[in-house]
Amino acid sequence: MGNQMNDQQLLRYSRHILLQEIGIEGQQRLLDSRVLIIGLGGLGSPAALYLAASGVGQLTLCDHDTVDFSNLQRQIIHRTGMAGQSKVVSAQAALREINPEVECVAVPIRADEALLRELAAQADVVLDCSDNFVTRYAVNRACLARRKPLVSGAAIQFHGQVAVFDYRRDDAPCYNCLFPEDSEAEELRCATTGVFSPLVGIIGTLQAAEALKLLIGIERGLSGKLLSVNALDMNILRSNLSKDPACRTCSGNSVRAIAVKQENS
């Protein structure tokens, strides 16, 4: 537990403190927490902004890319004047304006598996806000190895999804259970297929919400579940996932996890 909150912090976070589920103790947990965000694009932008505003003590920002003019349609953490600059440097500047109390650690390189394991080991929760399967599988393996909760998000065209894999639990399914690495799932890219701007805000904000609850210790949420959002029809579907006993990443072999129950929400 860190230092007791001062008057300015009590005022800044007062609307959290008023919530029975959070209170002073929960807010203090956020102040003492460390979150790793992989990808500072469409998903990482709103996630980082809300985590910083909420008072998460340290955010480690990992992205090798630079701000492109085409990013500005949806990657709201970046400003027009930052085009051509490192995304993590751009994000750092914006987050300092939001909440100068939050320590932002910039990692402006493409992280390999060794670095991902090192970064995951230092975090309390990991957010995968990347845009490709290679990174998602690597982040999944790193979080599984370090037993760190993983909040995974994806968005393309008008479709998005969020899932939480809490690797502190032995019965938790992993990302590879849901999307096997040797499957033939098509990988779509924003650059060639497009993406609806507010959708990434919806998904990234949901990731922030799930991360905050994990840090505070609120158990109600998406752990072991997949939330799918169709922003065209504004239809939301929640599926319960089960651990795949044949998964090659967390159990031995890889077969798609079964959605055992679906419920409209």
Rank of each mutant, 00 (worst) to 15 (best):
E263K: 14
I22F: 10
N71K: 06
E101N: 08
R34D: 04
N132S: 11
V260A: 01
R79Q: 14
A93S: 13
N240K: 12
G55H: 04
A47E: 01
L11F: 14
R74L: 02
I202C: 08
D128C: 01
Q262Y: 09
Y167C: 05
Q157G: 12
E219M: 13
L40N: 00
A191K: 02
D32C: 09
C143F: 01
I109T: 15
Q207L: 03
R96E: 13
L227T: 10
I77W: 05
L115C: 05
L59N: 01
A209T: 08
C104R: 00
F158V: 11
P198S: 08
V151L: 02
D128L: 02
D171Q: 13
L232I: 10
A114E: 11
P198F: 01
L30W: 01
D171Y: 09
V107I: 07
V56S: 05
I218H: 02
F196R: 02
S70L: 10
H159T: 09
V164N: 09
Q161V: 05
P46Y: 03
S228E: 14
Q8I: 08
R110A: 15
G23Q: 04
A211S: 11
S265F: 13
V67H: 02
Q85T: 14
Y167I: 08
L10E: 14
Y13A: 10
P173R: 03
L40V: 05
S228Q: 08
D128H: 07
A94S: 12
L10K: 12
C177F: 07
P173F: 06
N6Q: 02
I216H: 10
G204L: 02
A246T: 07
A111K: 14
V126G: 02
F179N: 07
C250I: 11
N71E: 07
L49C: 09
N71T: 12
E263M: 12
N235L: 08
G224L: 00
Q157Y: 05
I258E: 15
I38E: 04
D128W: 01
A53F: 13
I22N: 03
G153W: 01
F165T: 04
V200C: 04
E187I: 10
L43F: 12
I109Y: 14
T205Q: 04
R79S: 15
H64Q: 10
M82V: 12
N3Y: 10
S152Q: 03
R238D: 03
C104D: 01
G194Y: 10
A53T: 10
G57A: 06
G153F: 04
M1E: 06
P180S: 09
D233T: 15
I203Q: 06
